[in-house]
Amino acid sequence: MSSSSSSRVWLTGLGITAASILAVSQVIAHEGATGVVKERMDYMKTLGDNTGAIGAMFKGEAPYDLQAVQEHAGVLAGEAPRLTELFPEGSNEAPSETLPVTWEQWEDFQAKAADFQAASTALQETAEAEAEQAEVRAAFVRMGRTCGGCHEVYRKPKE
């Protein structure tokens, strides 16, 4: 085993440990969720795990690895199309964090979900095209803005 592959194994282990710590804290926040509310909280956690992993590289907490970015971006782009399906009307029992205005402004919500879908696909394409790191970063920032743009209006503020 070369030293670079052993450091990769070590980093992967570190990543798994970090992910499981994150998972534990997320489980606490999502405790008691059932049905579609649980399903969409798990879905959002999947998105967060993947954005978090890409973000860690741009923050310099993990080495920049284009192949890993491609994989995470692939998950995001692959998951994006089903986002609105996870918000059937009235599915808002505790501990759901969705604001009721979501269903009052359903068309706008759908438009914002479509923005996320387009931006995550663009990120995946940029990464697959092996663009410069700065371009991949810019595509990631643009995608992140679509996440925040939707949370701004449709999610309860965190305590």
Binding site: L22, Q26, G52, G55, G148, K158
Partner: peptide, 17 residues
């Protein structure tokens, strides 16, 4: 820069704006 918390979540509410 982009509203992402260390956990990979994206801030909402007024702070997103």
């Amino acid at each position: 820069e982009l509203g992402m918390t260390p956990a990979g979540d994206f801030v909402g509410g007024e702070m997103a704006a």
